[in-house]
């Protein structure tokens, strides 16, 4: 009975294919749980040795085996905040340009150029920053900042070209494409009817953007910003080149600092002491947990927007 055999084979094929694709889909969840579990397991010696003090002490001494994560966490958070503060207005500007201003023929190429900024590997940003951008900052920009704005404590320091502010600036350029592409997508979801009613009562283009498009897309935009923050927090190579790699905390943004990712990149392969390695893994765990929370928040905000706002349109 060939017909029945074929029917059977089809059924087996179906079950097999579904099973295999199910396996790989579930593997993503398993992988992320495993990632967390392995990091936690490897971090236990450090957490046992230092306890919660690991989070708020700032010694980092491989010789005496005393480790505290505060300066690295501080550097990661501050450099990312600088990046977001610089990147958000520019990204919004780019998104407005792409959705409202740009003539149709320019829309594709300009959008493409911004996407290419995202495609350039992180290490290229780092290297370019170190060899081209940092010397320029050190000779032209930073002396000027220190002279004119030095009365504000955060702008004090030596004009080295590398430090918290340069790292934050390069990070800003790296996250601009991510923020502006999400912002562009949510702007496009604004119903034309809303915008047209704005124009109909005589609003200028900017008033329509500011009073209608932006409030309408608020949660989506907020999600875009948080997504950019998440990207900046985990960025490694560019920061390693530019932040100056000095383990300490200083209020001056021009001074060299460090970040979690830069500390890992610099020390992980050279660490021999078990507590040192474990402390580095603990830093990685902190970074993973922070970015996971931030990115999950971004994802929820963007999703809420496209369900509540864009979906209705």
């Amino acid at each position: 009975m060939p017909f029945l055999d074929r029917h059977k084979a089809d059924k087996i094929g179906d079950a097999l294919f579904k099973g295999v694709s199910f396996f790989f889909a579930v593997s993503v969840i398993v992988l992320s749980c495993l990632l967390f579990a392995v990091l936690l397991w490897e971090a236990i010696p450090a957490l046992r040795a230092f306890g919660l003090r690991f989070l708020y002490t700032s010694a980092w001494d491989p010789v005496r085996s005393v480790f505290g994560a505060l300066p690295a966490i501080y550097g990661t958070v501050v450099s990312s905040i600088i990046a977001v503060v610089i990147a958000v207005p520019i990204s919004l500007g780019i998104a407005i340009f792409l959705t409202e201003l740009s003539p149709a023929w320019l829309c594709g190429p300009a959008g493409m150029a911004i996407e290419l900024l995202a495609a350039i590997p992180s290490i290229i940003y780092g290297m370019w920053g170190l060899f081209v951008f940092a010397p320029l900052l050190a000779s032209r920009v930073e002396p000027f900042i220190i002279e004119r704005l030095g009365f504000i404590p955060i702008f004090r320091g030596a004009p080295l070209g590398i430090g918290m502010l340069p790292a934050g600036f390069i990070l800003a350029i790296m996250i601009i494409p991510f923020i502006s592409s999400v912002a562009r997508d949510v702007f496009r979801m604004t119903p034309p009817m809303l915008k047209e009613s704005g124009y109909a009562v005589g609003a200028t283009r900017w008033e329509v953007i500011r009073r209608i498009v932006m409030p309408f897309t608020k949660s989506g935009l907020f999600g875009a910003v948080i997504l950019g923050l998440g990207r900046a927090l985990g960025e490694t190579m560019a920061v390693t080149f530019l932040i100056g790699n000095s383990y300490g905390m200083s209020a001056g943004l021009l001074n060299p600092a460090t970040s979690i990712s830069a500390t890992l990149a610099n020390e992980f392969t050279e660490a021999v002491d078990a507590v040192h390695i474990s402390s580095l893994v603990a830093l990685g765990l902190i970074l993973f947990v922070i970015t996971f929370i931030v990115l999950a928040g971004a994802k929820l905000l963007i999703k809420r927007f496209s369900l509540a706002g864009g979906g209705r349109a």
């Binding site: 993503v28 890992l264 970074l287």
Partner: peptide, 17 residues
């Protein structure tokens, strides 16, 4: 949800893993 987060997760952490 997890895949979306892993897309942007810090790659250096994957290295440690």
């Amino acid at each position: 949800f997890i895949a979306d987060i892993l897309v942007s997760a810090p790659s250096i952490v994957i290295g440690i893993f």
